[in-house]
Design a protein around this nucleic acid. Structure first.
Lengths: 346, 346
DNA sequence: ATGAAAGCGCTAACAA
DNA sequence: TTGTTAGCGCTTTCAT
């Protein structure tokens, strides 16, 4: 007996034989084509269920070069914002009967190249790129093959790509308004890595929010971080050396705020008694630390939906001009913010 | 002109034409088959590079029903342990030229069923199931189609499945030894959800560790949690009502420990001054809270490798008996543990 | 309303 | 050493 590769082989043909029709009819029933006699359709459906038929979309992908799969390329999964986005993204995809192809890059260009290659091999219909900075060269192959691309918070678009960004201005405005209402007048800011576009945008949004409430922007209360805990801690430590400390600090993201909390805790500075702290992102872990972090939540589900919607549009018409979408954010009061201390308030 | 589906279509045939050989030869070169004349192979390789050829593994999957893809089913991504495992798992897969198919279930049986169906549709070669509890019925289709399954910390195996678990005994032993050395004699335990097998195993491991050092196991210092922050907080609060408090608490996982830290912080109980706290998992966030959490690290990379190895073995020989692998853990001293307070130590 | 058949890209058995 | 070809499962066009 010859060696044959074992196949599961409950395919349309098998179903067709069982139903006494051709595989074309099975296909028509499954895809809801109109031109099938109701009784036939009914019988086929019954047999489909009976045999526990599971379709093989691989065949369709081969035939049409479309996989109903979207790729997601993330720099890492250590910042909890990424997994939370991933979770939402996966769910929205599944709800829309699409698949996910995940790739992580560790902000490493070689890995980004590998990821892009994987996307192409698996015939993805589009790619979401997180991490605002990356080498354009690395994603060139996607352009060449006219694969739709959506970036997150990159704030640039070109034909065939989209960008989904977050409304930082609105977020910091709400935060500053709240702090203002609590009597804070001197506010500091722990920013992101210098030279990254989103860092500048966030800082500008903070500054604009101050201006909106007629508050002074003190350049000496601004520090650079790195979007991670350690950078936030170092920035906070440095800020504590200021001649006159702020009574509240806003941060570029929640991890930075965690670093600030740690710095304050280790120096016995009470939060929110002596200093209020506000994060940005709204990661779940913000509710786990003490004090629980007041922050601005980025709604991951809505962002995911926007990405998928934009990808779909681009797929239908790849030549259209780039699309930008802005996602509104939501201020969340928890426990790391309180009244401005008397001694420092003017 | 008729409408045709646009295909990228840089396929082997195109390369073959360009090289003046047949597509079989291209295939042979790509797959390193011996029987190709070196010069031919060299020329083909050059052209492959020149044309920027990217293979289409979909075709192979269709032909052989094997996708070189492993599925990973996780209950959620909120506990940072899961994303950290996922990250490691994805990397190990990519290093081994495999793909990942991720599915999340929210511990919801309907979603688990959907996930399993997705796995089957995409022709995965094996599935890793995280989350120790699930309905056997839901994964039945995987068994029927003889898809290898590996569970994480489920502690049961049956033919065609494997289990990768963690050495809790070793972990708690190291932790108790360290605390013992710091003078602690009364230790409490914040456990997991009752009725879950792994909760019992972890508690038993803690108990055994106490015995090993001749310490008393105080049933009144044991509390039930839920593997989440809130459960840990509630458990800690309850434990503080004990007639005689412990000087140290061990926990079932890091989130539980975070809850404990929050409870202690809110009551002004100093950690580690008045109470030492030890987590389990070693999630990165443990280094972000203050005080930084002493914990027992589960090495995600090694666990991933073990899963993939076991899946590979099962795939090669599905009929073999179940395989169990235990992963060693590593005690990590950070800042949430210190000398036992005098007043309470005997 | 239904069926026959081509073809997506790749690989391996077989032929030359 | 290389080429020819069948066939994986599906969808859709064309024919009946």
């Amino acid at each position: 007996m010859k060696h044959r590769v074992e196949k599961t082989a409950l395919n349309m043909r098998a179903v067709a034989e069982r139903a006494g029709v051709s595989s074309a009819t099975i296909s028509r029933v499954i895809n809801g084509s109109s031109a099938v006699k109701p009784e036939t359709a009914e019988r086929v459906r019954r047999i489909l269920k009976e045999l526990n038929y599971i379709p093989n979309p691989i065949a369709t992908t081969l035939k049409y070069g479309r996989s109903n799969t979207f790729g997601l390329i993330v720099p890492d999964l250590v910042n909890p914002f990424f997994p939370e986005f991933l979770l939402a993204f996966e769910q929205v995809l599944v709800e829309n009967e699409h698949e996910l192809l995940l790739a992580t890059t560790q902000s490493n260009e070689a890995k980004l190249l590998t990821s892009v290659r994987r996307m192409l091999m698996r015939q993805v219909d589009g790619v979401v790129l997180m991490g605002s900075e990356y080498e354009t060269r690395a994603v060139e192959p996607l352009f060449e093959r006219r694969i739709p691309i959506v970036t997150l918070d990159r704030r640039r678009v070109q034909p065939g790509t989209g960008d989904v960004s977050f409304n930082f201005e609105g977020g910091y405005l709400q935060a500053v308004e709240y702090l203002y209402g609590l009597g804070h007048r001197r506010m500091g800011f722990l920013g992101g890595t210098k030279g990254i576009r989103t860092s500048e945008i966030r800082l500008a949004a903070f500054q604009k929010a101050l201006e909106h409430f007629g508050l002074t922007y003190y350049p000496e209360l601004i520090r650079e971080g790195d979007y991670r805990v350690d950078g936030g801690e170092a920035a906070m430590v440095s800020l504590l050396d200021a001649a006159r400390r702020p009574t509240a600090v806003l941060t570029v993201n929640d991890l930075t705020a965690f670093g600030a909390l740690r710095a304050l805790h280790e120096r016995g500075i009470s939060v929110p008694g002596d200093m209020s702290v506000v994060g940005f992102d709204g990661i779940q872990m913000g509710g786990a630390v003490s004090p629980q972090l007041t922050t601005v939540r980025i709604p991951a589900r809505e962002a995911s939906q926007a990405c998928i919607q934009v990808l779909g549009r681009l797929r239908d018409n790849i030549t259209r001009r780039g699309m930008s979408v802005s996602i509104d954010v939501e201020f969340m009061v928890r426990r790391s913010t309180g009244r401005a201390p008397r001694v420092r308030a003017r």
